[in-house]
Simulated assay, not measured.
Amino acid sequence: MTHAKLMTLSEAIAAFVHDGCSVSLEGFTHIIPYAAAHEIIRQQKRNLTVYRMTADIVVDQLIAGDCVDELVSSFIGNSSVGSLHELRRRIEGKGPRPLRYREYSHGGMIARYLAGASGLPFYPLLSYAGSDLPKINDEIRVIESPYDGQKIYVVPPINADVAIVHAQRADAKGNVQIWGLTGIQQEVAYSAEKVIVTVEEIVDEDVITSDPNRTLLPSHVVDAVVEVPKGAHPSFVQGYYDRDGAFYRQWNDISKDPQTLQDWLEEWIHELTDHSDYVAKQGPQFWDQLASPYVPSLPVNYGSRQS
């Protein structure tokens, strides 16, 4: 049976990511959608607004690919092992093009996704009290509680044109399962107009229904599901492969020099047809060193009353 939601990565990005649109790219340390970001660079998408709580290497690459006009995030850094030099150059006005940057706290970004997923005009939170962020971000505002008159901060919703997330597995209908660090993938998906999910593997529907509590994204919220093994490298995918710490350390030197960075994009993205070429170029020995040990979860009994 053919399922319309099954696409190649090239097809999904071409169909849903358009010049000038807004894109949520989430995944906290775990299941970061690098392959999708590389395809955005490969297809030379332009003038994007990118939402990402932890703006890390994947954002540095997108900016270096001249894909991003505006970044909205709550953290900038290369996971405590270096800097994001292209991002820094753009914010400081030293790159070929400027970058608009709007900063929130992690709590503020989560609140924005919650508002977007819930159809709310704003979301309240108290954590900005004493912070300087409201002074530099005019979207963080103060209202009076209708119950006790308390002053509380509010932030607007995120409703991106498209959300892109990575996961362990899905069926062909787009029922998506995630375990390990689940983060805010569900809220991100429900807050967006369209949703692309890349997965390590497409599995039969009975695999999904046999363990329903792992289904974080049901099919009705997913517009495209793409099988992309190793699609989160250099981040990790619980149960599939480990984090590539060596690459995170190397990125500081790669991004420090603009020409070295452009050479990396050319070799590892533009000269390759798709992510399968990226995987093949690394070679089997490389992937063997990142292999995850087999540590199964204990089975549970989903039986209920006799039918």
Rank of each mutant, 00 (worst) to 15 (best):
H30L: 04
K45H: 07
A36F: 04
L120P: 09
I110W: 12
V50L: 12
D60F: 05
R97G: 06
E103S: 11
I41M: 07
S79R: 14
L87R: 05
R88A: 11
A111V: 04
I31S: 14
A64N: 04
G27C: 08
G130E: 00
F75Q: 06
Y113V: 07
R102P: 04
L62F: 03
A64S: 10
V17H: 02
R88T: 14
G93D: 07
R102E: 12
Y123E: 15
F75E: 06
R90K: 11
E11Q: 15
S79K: 12
R42Q: 11
M53H: 14
D132L: 13
K94S: 05
P98K: 03
Q44L: 08
L114G: 08
M109Q: 03
A14C: 06
S105Q: 10
G108K: 01
L84W: 01
L48P: 05
G77W: 03
T29L: 09
G65A: 13
F28W: 11
H38S: 13
I91H: 09
S80V: 05
F16Q: 08
N47T: 05
S22T: 15
Y123I: 01
L48A: 02
A12I: 11
G20R: 01
A129G: 10
L126Y: 11
D60K: 05
E39A: 04
P33Y: 07
R90C: 09
P96E: 15
R90M: 01
V68N: 02
V58E: 03
E86N: 09
K94T: 08
E86A: 08
N78I: 04
D66Y: 08
I57L: 14
P98W: 06
H85K: 10
S80Y: 14
F122T: 08
Y51I: 05
V58P: 00
G108R: 00
V68M: 03
I91S: 02
R100H: 07
A35S: 15
Y128M: 02
F16Y: 15
Q44D: 10
Y101V: 08
R112Q: 12
S83E: 14
G119R: 11
I32A: 14
I63F: 01
A35D: 09
D66L: 10
Y128L: 02
H30P: 02
D19A: 04
L114A: 13
A115M: 09
D66S: 12
Y51T: 00
L114H: 12
V81C: 09
L87I: 12
R102V: 15
G93K: 01
Y101G: 03
F75S: 06
A35Q: 09
G93Y: 00
L114I: 13
F16K: 07
